[in-house]
Computed example of a mutant assay.
Amino acid sequence: MRRSERKQQEPDLGVLASRLLFGVQSELFATLAQQGHAGLRPQHGAVLAHLDAEGSRATDLARHSGQHKQVVGKLVDELEQLGYVERRPDPTDRRAKLIVPTARGLDQMERSDAIVAGIEERAASAVGAEAYATFKDLLRRVSAHQRGG
Rank of each mutant, 00 (worst) to 15 (best):
P11K: 10
A38G: 11
S26L: 07
L79N: 09
A46Y: 12
L13S: 10
M1R: 12
D107S: 14
A30N: 15
R140G: 03
R104N: 08
M1E: 05
Q35H: 09
Q146D: 12
L20Q: 14
G73K: 09
E54W: 06
A58H: 00
L79F: 07
A114V: 10
L13K: 11
Y84C: 03
A58D: 02
E130P: 01
I119Q: 13
S18Q: 14
T59D: 12
T102E: 05
L32W: 09
Q108S: 06
Q8M: 10
R63P: 00
K7Y: 10
I99C: 13
Q8N: 10
E120Q: 12
L16T: 09
E80M: 03
E5W: 05
P11S: 11
A131H: 04
L28I: 05
T31E: 15
S4M: 06
R147S: 09
V127S: 04
A133Q: 15
R57V: 02
R94N: 07
Q9P: 00
A53E: 12
V15R: 14
G23A: 02
P101Q: 11
H145A: 15
G14H: 13
A124S: 15
R41Y: 02
R88C: 01
S143P: 00
I119Y: 04
S143M: 03
V15S: 12
Q25D: 15
D113H: 12
A129E: 13
A129P: 01
P101K: 09
M109Y: 01
R2L: 11
T134Q: 15
P11E: 08
A49Y: 09
G23F: 04
V24K: 08
L98M: 10
A53T: 07
P91N: 11
E120I: 01
R3Y: 08
A103L: 08
R141H: 07
L139D: 11
G83V: 07
D93G: 02
K7N: 08
A17S: 11
R94T: 14
A117N: 10
K136W: 01
V100K: 05
D107N: 08
S18E: 15
R140S: 10
L16Q: 12
I115K: 04
Y132G: 02
L20S: 11
L48W: 02
A131F: 00
R147I: 02
A114I: 05
E120A: 11
V142P: 00
A49K: 10
V100P: 02
Q146R: 15
V15N: 08
H68T: 02
H37N: 06
L13H: 11
A17G: 01
I99K: 02
D93P: 00
